[in-house]
Design a protein around this nucleic acid. Structure first.
Length: 273
DNA sequence: GGGATTGTTTAAAT
DNA sequence: GATTTAAACAATCC
């Protein structure tokens, strides 16, 4: 569930709690939650000097553990990052624990074990294909560049928005919400959209992402900030999770269909085919 | 107990 | 080769 706004919120809440802290122990409770890369234990002794986001990926910069330069976390569906006080014991879904030199403990919890932590060296980072193939950041993309990403594509817009190699950070929630705001049917092929329509979609996508970041993201079920607080943007969904309910604009029943392999909610009246 | 849930990878098709 | 689509996978909850 954590998409761009949720990961961004975790970055912002986590940063002040861990910046400058030293990692004094690494505990892996579930080896499957560690993804390839380098040995996580080699992070011991390093100092956290940065927390960043790229797409849906959280990146921690760690100094003093050469050749390692940090680690990445992908939360996938149910991953969470929390900072707990000293002596907090692991929960049923705790997969990795980093102990910090002030006694605090950084927990990676993940009920369904889809997410991962990955230790990075400079070389490993450079050769990480997932990283290398990520598309541009939507919030930093000029409208003309956004249009270029999609022009000539024959696939449905819904699927293209979800493709991390085209655009990084958009998931099911913000794909549906931005298409609704732009009045575009999710099955519309990119090639059938005008330049103006694509530019409008760009604007609506940025707006919905920024609004959600302001609300600390959307908490459907699992997502929480690094402080454990729920976000509030789930209360402002116009279509996501509202299949069968009346459209906010016109009152028609919202449709629910599988498009590009995912449940998609849209208004058949406001987003005509 | 079956269906829903999600992002990513891989394979197959165009 | 590039693009698109589908299936597989991870595991749990309700």
């Amino acid at each position: 569930m954590p998409e761009l706004p949720e990961v961004e919120t975790i970055v912002r809440t986590l940063l002040p709690m861990v910046l400058g802290k030293k990692i004094c122990a690494v505990q892996v409770l579930n080896p499957g939650s560690v993804d390839g890369g380098e040995n996580l234990a080699l992070l011991v002794g390093g100092s956290i000097v940065g927390i960043r986001r790229r797409g849906k990926l959280l990146l921690a910069d760690v100094d003093g553990v050469a050749p390692l330069i940090g680690f990445a976390v992908h939360l996938k569906m149910t991953g969470r990052l929390f900072v707990y006080p000293q002596n907090t014991s692991s929960g049923p879904h705790t997969r990795v624990i980093l102990d910090l030199d002030d006694g605090q403990r950084l927990f990676f919890d993940d009920a369904r074990k889809f997410g991962y932590v990955r230790a990075l060296s400079e070389i490993g980072f450079r050769n990480w294909s997932f990283w290398n193939k990520l598309g541009p950041e939507p919030l930093e993309l000029p409208p003309a560049a956004f249009v270029n990403l999609f022009t000539g594509r024959r696939a449905a817009m819904k699927g293209l928005l979800l493709d991390q190699q085209i655009l990084a950070g958009v998931g099911n929630i913000y794909a549906d919400e931005s298409l609704f705001r732009a009045g575009i049917h999710p099955r519309t092929k990119a090639v059938d959209l005008s330049c103006a329509q694509l530019e409008a979609l760009c604007g609506h996508l940025k707006a919905v992402l920024e609004e959600s970041i302001r609300d600390c993201g959307s908490s459907i079920k699992d997502y929480r900030t690094a402080r454990g607080d729920a976000g509030a943007f789930q209360n402002k969904f116009r279509v996501y999770g509202r299949g069968g309910k009346p459209c906010i604009t016109c009152g028609s029943a919202l449709a629910s269909q599988t498009i590009a392999g995912r449940t998609t909610i849209f208004c058949p009246h406001c987003q005509p085919e």
